[in-house]
Design a binder for these strands. Structure first.
Length: 225
DNA sequence: GTCCAGGGCC
DNA sequence: GGCCCTGGAC
């Protein structure tokens, strides 16, 4: 299992390298639990700068509250979140979350925070519009659960560095990081933030390894596709 | 003006 | 695999 040991070390080392470069990135951008959840939905397949515009518009329209989201009409919601893209889909997704919250948790986020992590994850995944990444983002950043969030960047970094076989599933990737990292919520929080950072700046669809803090991990090899 | 990046559903 | 969408880069 020499191969796996190398990857285990690299997963730690990658974090140390990124943290040395960036310090703690201080996620999640969101003032309240609800705002974090809304952001997690709006950021699907979308750059965060566009999400910020949508969040600002929601706040300006007084829609960034449970009451506001509940009472908002779909067109009103769509108009506000337009900058985040897929606005018709995402307006329905926000409504779907509210419906679940109201029907299953008495409309209280505090009550949604009660179930153990595996059950809460199932409940979130059952909501239309919430897939694995969004569910795990909500668990980690809104409910402080020790849940590793896998996104496109994390997948790219892991594959290009040969930490996992090509075309891994979401669950395989999550298991890889969960196995190798200590059980530490702040670490999971910052690890994901660092992956997003390195994905945006270096591990893009076209790799830009020059200047990347993770370049030493490649040992001179080219990154795998 | 065209192209690119980015999760989830059907 | 096709569909949903935008702002920013070029």
């Amino acid at each position: 299992m020499a191969v796996r040991l190398v990857h285990c070390r690299d997963i730690h080392r990658a974090y140390r390298l990124l943290h040395a470069r960036n310090g703690l990135l201080g996620w999640w951008p969101g003032r309240t639990r609800l705002e974090i959840i809304v952001g997690a939905i709006l950021t699907q397949n979308t750059a965060w700068t566009n999400v910020e515009k949508a969040i600002r518009a929601l706040r300006a329209a007084r829609l960034l509250s449970l009451r506001g989201l509940r009472s908002a009409g779909l067109p009103e919601l769509e108009e506000a979140i337009r900058p985040s893209g897929y606005f018709r889909q995402k307006a329905r997704k926000l409504k779907a979350f509210l419906t679940c919250l109201d029907d299953d948790f008495g409309g209280r986020l505090n009550r949604m925070a009660r179930p153990a992590t595996p059950e809460l994850r199932e409940r979130l995944l059952a909501i239309w519009g919430i897939g694995p990444e969004t569910a795990d983002s909500v668990l980690l950043y809104a409910f402080n659960r020790r849940t590793f969030v896998v996104d496109t960047y994390t997948k790219r970094v892991a594959c290009r560095h040969g930490w996992i076989r090509p075309n891994p599933s979401y669950d395989d990737l999550q298991a890889l990081f969960s196995r190798h990292l200590p059980e530490d919520v702040p670490l999971y929080n910052d690890y994901h933030a660092q992956m997003v950072w390195v994905g945006k700046h270096y591990c893009r669809t076209k790799p830009q390894c020059e200047g990347c803090p993770l370049k030493p991990l490649l040992l001179g090899r080219p990154p795998e596709a």
